[in-house]
């Protein structure tokens, strides 16, 4: 994340331009969702200061386009969409993840890396449960780092599904993408995340297996 994210001043100015009634409405809609927005932002950009900037930028945008929100019962979905779009456009601006658009179109979802497959040892049952043991050795920070390593589109999909606990349909609606694409991004995102965790576990000496096939 760079320093391109709109500042608090934009939020200040955006809010100032609203009528008193709109301000009250924004407060009523946004304040109860602030914790959700911050958690989502944190799961995407990890650093607290960046997450705060992202939330501020989201609310600034919400103030600007407030007139376009028809159904206020969908405020959460609307705010999550703004936040996702802000995050993704920032990712693209940094152009670190040019490959995203390409990988979406590949259909090979079945042949992906699985941490379970790499670690479990079905023929050595008396060893207990190495894959569960591995998970218990991983810190929240390890898991967050793995999430951070994902290309933006996959990170958003996995965060909405796993961190926020939203349904595929809700995610499709937030990101304005088909259900099949949601499914595929979650599967690919998890696969990449698990591969990252596997490499970390290997570096930490938590697993003794050889390089996985994929």
């Amino acid at each position: 994340m760079g320093t391109i994210i709109p500042s608090w001043r934009q939020l200040d100015e955006g809010y100032m331009r609203l009528t008193q009634q709109q301000r009250e409405e924004i407060k009523r809609l946004v304040l109860p969702l602030l914790d959700d927005l911050e958690r989502f932002a944190l799961s995407l950009c990890h650093r607290e200061d960046l997450a705060e900037e992202l939330v501020a930028a989201t609310i600034a945008s919400a103030c600007e386009s407030f007139g376009r929100l028809r159904d206020t019962t969908k405020a959460k979905q609307w705010l999550f969409r703004i936040l996702s779009n802000k995050f993704l456009s920032d990712c693209r601006r940094q152009s670190r993840h040019k490959e995203i658009a390409l990988t979406d179109s590949l259909e090979d979802d079945n042949n992906q890396f699985s941490l379970f497959a790499a670690v479990s040892q079905p023929f050595l049952l008396w060893w207990g449960n190495p894959e569960r043991e591995l998970i218990s050795h991983l810190l929240d920070e390890d898991i967050q780092n793995a999430l951070d390593s994902l290309p933006g589109d996959f990170r958003v999909a996995v965060a909405l599904c796993d961190v926020e606990g939203l349904t595929y349909e809700q995610i499709a609606s937030i990101l304005k993408i088909p259900l099949g694409t949601v499914r595929s991004r979650i599967a690919r995102g998890r696969s990449l995340l698990q591969k990252k965790l596997w490499h970390h576990a290997r570096d930490m000496g938590l697993v003794k297996t050889k390089e996985p096939h994929q």
């Binding site: 998970i135 961190v163 998890r190």
Partner: peptide, 13 residues
């Protein structure tokens, strides 16, 4: 296993 990993992500933040 997948459920366990999912629950770890759910716990983040």
């Amino acid at each position: 296993f997948e459920k366990l990993l999912k629950s770890r992500l759910r716990r983040l933040n």
